[in-house]
């Protein structure tokens, strides 16, 4: 579903990500772990087609993001680490805007918005302007807007930050449901416990380079993901 091949991105002389290759298959939840400034967001943004890169290729559902970004964007949903949404719209106006852009039919959008807004306890707040939302509510709205168009791939940057326990649980359940339906999830996180329990595969990045990847068992063995991560960090210091 998402194939990253020899992806390299530099800012000036500094290589933010160097020759990264990952392959996320349909049905997989793929965790992306690394310290601050490791290159996670740079990789994620390139996968969503909002950041140009120097070399390598990124394919979404077999389509090159470089050559056909629009077709890729139709298949994916992106949730950034800090959901800065349109403050001048109400929650429902924002969801309707997203539905319009993705060409979702009237009945379908109504059903999906109702379903997910109810699930994430946001229905009562949909008439409020986004400017009145808390960080968690904005995060919920961004998640709902990502789900209403049934994406094949969801790319998330620190999706659990700001979510209340119920919403966090619900998001994890929804992630599993999407993968059961043949979709794929690629997300970055600092919450290693969540990654350990949720992910089928995991990749650890450090200083822009991939230092370990594979199934959860391959990466952590008998240890905890946290121990492995800290050990790898120490080894590469």
């Amino acid at each position: 579903m998402l194939k990253i091949e020899h992806y390299t991105k530099s800012y000036g002389n500094k290589k933010a990500v160097d020759d990264l290759s990952l392959h996320i298959l349909p049905g997989e939840i793929y965790g992306f772990i690394g310290h601050n400034g490791a290159g996670k967001t740079t990789t994620i943004k390139a996968c969503c087609g909002i950041l140009q890169f120097d070399s390598g290729e990124i394919y979404v559902d077999g389509i090159s993001i470089r050559e056909n970004p629009l077709a890729c964007k139709k298949r994916l949903a992106y949730i950034p680490d800090n959901p800065d949404l349109y403050d001048f719209m109400t929650g429902i106006q924002y969801l309707n805007f997203v539905a319009d852009i993705f060409g979702i039919g009237a009945v379908d959008r109504q059903t999906k918005i109702h379903q997910y807004a109810d699930a994430f306890d946001l229905t009562a707040d949909l008439a409020q302007p986004v400017s009145a939302y808390s960080h968690g509510m904005k995060q919920k709205l961004a998640i709902i807007s990502a789900l209403i168009h049934d994406p094949k791939l969801i790319i998330m940057d620190e999706p659990f930050v700001g979510l209340d326990p119920k919403a966090s649980y619900l998001l994890k359940e929804t992630m599993r449901d999407i993968c059961k339906g043949g979709g794929a999830i690629f997300f970055s996180t600092h919450v290693l416990d969540v990654a350990e329990r949720l992910c089928d595969k995991v990749a650890i990045i450090r200083g822009g380079k991939l230092i370990k990847s594979g199934t959860m068992e391959e990466v952590k063995g008998d240890m905890s993901l946290e121990s492995v991560f800290l050990e790898l960090e120490e080894r590469h210091d």
Binding site: C48, G49, I50, K73, K74, P80, D84, L85, I101, F102
Partner: peptide, 10 residues
């Protein structure tokens, strides 16, 4: 907010 239109199929 620029990421919104940048990440959408538009």
């Amino acid at each position: 907010n620029l990421w919104i239109v940048q990440s959408m199929p538009v």
